[in-house]
Design a protein around this nucleic acid. Structure first.
Lengths: 199, 199
DNA sequence: TGTGATACCGACCCTACGGTATGGCAGCAA
DNA sequence: TTGCTGCCATACCGTAGGGTCGGTATCACA
């Protein structure tokens, strides 16, 4: 019928965007391909032309959208931080910005849902967590070298803790979307980060 | 056919147990009623005799199994704690015991999946979080009165932070089941708890 | 021992799901 | 212009999903 112009990249991105939106609300199993293509104003024909099946599409979304989004939110900015105060401020703003539907929330939700039952998606999501932890650990290592992180700190451990804390914030915020809760979590996290300071 | 003896309570519990097991692995949307009744060695007839629909069954599981399980793991033991060292030790063991399939993990997964799209289940799960936070806050309040928690601490805020941290541990552990990761999270959490001590 | 109510089974219904088959239009190369 | 390839729409399929219904076995109680 009304055949749209051929723009494979745009179509592909539209599908992945719609998929991400559905995943963020209904999770992986709860998101139907019908809802996704409807949201994207496309059809299943387009979807299955670009992806062999639902799981592959989800994997592509993780790779092409979720992973870059988290990199932009975390990995890149972390490279520019050069003091504990800057790290504290950065973590606070990232904490206050947490909202259902953002990249962090989607990462956590999808991980909680699929990690236990789907190796493909589970490992793809775990890779993102690994990069996240590594970026934070690198920063802490730099901080030790530059003298604003205490020598006794083990960067990998602390990075794992901070990442987990953010994952937890994301979940509890989803259930209990109070700005106050986020503020107190941010404050508590800052207090924790302060313990890493070289005295 | 081979009609089993009538034991409604046992049947009901068997269904809820099977449902919980499926939920822990596949999430809410990913768990079919067929798999649940098969696991319970029952039929849909039994299921729909005890519950009007899937959502009500999930709500019953939350109320009758998940909530008591978390109370047993957290609320009750917290009442017996009387020092910061005891709290630290308790949190460490609870952290090390985190495993996919336990109550905490199920709570977090279900919350991440349903809180955004299902009011009934979402609020039921949020109630559990609320009780959890309240129990911790009560303990910290007592600690302030008894002089082993610093006066400037705001119990509600710190409780929210600790609960979120555990939720995060649960998610990252699910994706990355290393004992080492849990150990480091436990250590970092202890370091944080130490900052609450009255000096 | 009979009787009504409860607990449970088994077969069925309908929808929505993931996925397929087919065919037409757009674009490009010759 | 022709022909070919890639992109996308439409119609459809098989199955598994949640949920219903009639019937039967068991229990509580008279």
């Amino acid at each position: 019928m009304k055949q749209r112009k051929k723009q494979p990249q745009i179509t592909r991105q539209a599908i992945l965007e719609a998929a991400g939106a559905e995943f963020s609300i209904h999770g992986y199993a709860g998101s139907g391909l019908g809802s996704i293509v409807t949201r994207a104003e496309l059809t299943k024909g387009a979807l299955f032309h670009h992806f062999p099946d639902k799981r592959a599409m989800a994997a592509a979304w993780i790779e092409d959208h979720l992973s870059p989004a988290l990199a932009a939110h975390w990995i890149t900015p972390l490279e520019l931080i050069g003091s504990l105060d800057a790290l504290r401020a950065f973590c606070r703003t990232r904490c206050m910005e947490l909202t259902p539907g953002d990249a962090t929330s989607a990462l956590v939700s999808l991980t909680a849902e699929t990690a236990a039952s789907d190796d493909v998606l589970g490992t793809a999501l775990e890779h993102i967590f690994t990069h996240w932890r590594a970026a934070l650990a690198d920063l802490l290592e730099r901080g030790k070298a530059d003298g604003w992180i205490h020598r006794s700190i083990q960067p990998a451990s602390e990075a794992a803790f901070v990442v987990s804390a953010f994952a937890g914030f994301s979940v509890t915020t989803r259930a209990h979307p109070e700005e106050n809760a986020l503020r107190t979590c941010a404050t508590a996290l800052e207090a924790y980060l302060e313990t890493l300071r070289a005295q």
